[in-house]
């Protein structure tokens, strides 16, 4: 199921603008890795290169390598569509497809894969909604629009939609930043459960959240505004929060800047 990710010497560009420079890191399978760092340092940008969503933006391109269990995602023969089926993504703002019912939202990825069998779809919908801790709340209104749910429920619906296609890796870009504390807690518990089956990478601007949910933490920073962002260090979350190697990390974590 879960795969490891190795990033090597990755530079990321928006057109001519180099947004992130020289990222080299590993993400362990069946673990939660958190990306922290000040706003604009490139956390989202790096995350989006892990499933080739970056190149959806006009002018978006990368130099360097991203290996998923030794398979280079950016090799010329690799189809970005296939990458995205293997590496799922949950966004900052919940984005269920507004014209689809709850059930169709969860089934959307499977249908794209050509699954039409109603029994299989029903099974996967239930399994995914249970996996996203949402089943009990929506089982009586599967045919109602997903947009009618609360923000936190919508975000869990998006998680259900992402895990329905059984990806190897799940990327989450500040999945709680638009949610209230109770919904946030629900998602955090879910993230904890998800790492049994998936490799999870989560961007968060909330350091307590990183400390709560992640096994490893990567700290990104900017040398100066207008300069590319870079990875300062990545280590066990415990180490990063108690005894980081680089003083900039300690400054950031203790709130001395950022």
């Amino acid at each position: 199921m879960a795969k490891r990710i190795d990033v090597k010497d990755l530079d990321i560009f928006y057109g001519d603008f180099k947004a992130v420079e020289g990222v080299t890191m590993s993400v362990e399978p069946r673990s939660v890795t958190a990306f922290i760092g000040p706003s604009g340092c490139g956390k989202s940008t790096v995350l989006r290169t892990l499933n080739r969503m970056h190149e959806v933006i006009p002018g978006g391109r990368v130099e360097g390598k991203v290996l998923l269990d030794d398979q280079d995602l950016y090799a010329p023969t690799v189809d970005p569509v296939a990458v995205r089926r293997t590496v799922g993504m949950v966004f900052q703002r919940p984005n269920p497809f507004p014209t689809m019912s709850i059930k169709d939202n969860v089934a959307a990825g499977l249908k794209l894969n050509g699954v039409r069998n109603a029994k299989i779809l029903d099974e996967v919908v239930e399994r995914s909604l249970r996996g996203a801790n949402l089943w009990n709340e929506v089982k009586d209104r599967l045919n109602k629009p997903g947009a009618g749910l609360s923000g936190g429920q919508q975000q869990r619906l998006c998680i259900a939609r992402a895990i329905a296609v059984e990806p190897q890796v799940l990327l989450m870009d500040e999945p709680c930043s638009a949610l209230d504390p109770i919904s946030t807690l629900a998602i955090e518990e879910l993230v904890h459960a998800l790492k049994d089956r998936f490799t999870v990478v989560i961007v968060t601007h909330n350091m307590q959240q990183a400390a709560r949910v992640s096994d490893r933490t990567a700290f990104f920073n900017l040398k100066a505004t207008g300069q590319p962002g870079h990875l300062v260090e990545i280590d066990d979350t415990q180490t990063i929060f108690s005894n980081p190697t680089v003083s900039a990390t300690e400054d950031y974590i203790s709130g001395r800047f950022g």
């Binding site: 969503m53 569509v81 966004f91 497809f97 507004p98 014209t99 959307a108 992402a162």
Partner: peptide, 24 residues
Amino acid sequence: THKEGAYALGATKWEMIRTAVLPF
């Protein structure tokens, strides 16, 4: 956000159009 939601599920461009653009 709708378009990226479709892409992130592994939609091709045409599938993205069918899932996000046309319904919208």
